[in-house]
């Protein structure tokens, strides 16, 4: 039997009727049309599906949408605060060439946001530990780490 749930996603309110076995990843992509969040391994290993749920980075492929009822979700579509400018993390990824095929990028950027909120000036070891749950099949880790260092410096200068 469908459950009616309420979600706030990137500041927009949604009310959707869903079956209890559907994941947050499926509901974001298929019901809300937010396909920025990717579906990778489906088992919690790759991190491509990472979103923030109530401020915490979680794997949307292992989150039942019904259990997120009432939750506040932020996806890669909600990283940039307006249409004029990308988020400093996104700008740093582009400027630093930290994107190859791009499939891991939305999850990487959400994990980076989670890390930088909790540790605004992380060490390289802290960045690598913070991204341990995000795999890049292109193995472009060095530039991803450097991009997060650059974003960290930018965000410390201009918070928000």
């Amino acid at each position: 039997m469908p459950h009616v749930i309420r979600l706030q996603v990137n500041g927009d309110r949604y009310e959707v009727a869903i079956e209890p076995w559907r994941t947050l990843n499926e509901v974001l992509r298929e019901d809300l049309g937010l396909t920025g969040t990717k579906h990778g391994c489906g088992q919690g290993d790759c991190g491509a599906c990472t979103v923030l749920l109530d401020g915490r980075s979680v794997l949307s492929c292992l989150t039942l949408a019904v259990s997120a009822d009432g939750g506040d979700v932020r996806t890669v579509e909600g990283l940039a605060q307006g249409r004029e400018r990308l988020h400093p993390i996104q700008e740093a990824f582009i400027a630093g060439g930290a994107i190859q095929c791009g499939y891991c990028t939305p999850g990487m950027e959400i994990s980076a946001l989670h890390l930088l909120r909790r540790r605004p000036r992380p060490t390289e070891a802290e960045i690598r530990a913070g991204l341990a749950g995000n795999l890049c099949r292109c193995t472009g880790y060095a530039k991803i780490v450097a991009a997060i260092q650059a974003a960290s410096a930018r965000m410390s200068d201009e918070p928000g």
Binding site: G44, G47, R56, S57, V58, H114, A132, G133
Partner: peptide, 9 residues
């Protein structure tokens, strides 16, 4: 134990 996301869940 595990990764940031798994520890958050």
């Amino acid at each position: 134990t595990a990764t940031v996301q798994i520890r958050n869940m």
